[in-house]
Amino acid sequence: MTWVWENLDLIWDRTLDHLILSVPPIILSFVIALPLGWLANRYRLSRGVILTASGLLYAIPSFPMFIVLPALVGTTLRSPLNLVIALTIYGVALMVRVVADGLASVDADVQRSAVAVGFSAWTNFWQVELPLSGPVLLAGLRVVAVSTVSLATVGAVIGAQSLGSLFTDGFQRGIQAEIITGIVATVLLALLLDAALVAAGRLALPWTRARKAVKADARLRPPVEVTP
């Protein structure tokens, strides 16, 4: 524990570095995955192409990805941008499938009703499909957040500063406490971002909370006999 107290500044700096690396990919992957997921859900052909491509991208190990990307997009190896792009690719690869599944889970009757009362495809997406698939999207985004925070540490091996730097530095200098601190800090940061997403979900999807409350309420009351 003494190592932690003596190095609070270092831990704080690396935590900020880590946030800068991991928050933009989480937001970007949601924004990019929305249209791609919609497209994957809409047409059979685009579904095959998009889901196969995202599956293959997700299979690429992170360390080689960090090295190949600069050659493809012209960023420098150690720049935060390089890591942000790589982490966004992983986030999108995970999220596209979630968006496609979420949109597919929307009740066909509800969609038909929306069309029947005159919703255009555009308003139908924003006001019916997107809100109704909200809980599925939120669950997917939480997985993306936890895996992004964990993956960002790998950037340390190419020299990009993050909480992962505590692993490489601790290993080279033989300080066990530094590595353990890094692991704990990474897990805590993941939990923090996860909690933030849950809170954002409560704000954005207030009806899911209400439905849970109704369910809990219903359990307390004796079941009502329904006469046909």
Partner: peptide, 11 residues
């Protein structure tokens, strides 16, 4: 799953 692989490896 939340534990960073690099951290576990170096530890």
């Amino acid at each position: 799953r939340a534990i960073p692989t690099l951290g576990l490896l170096t530890l």
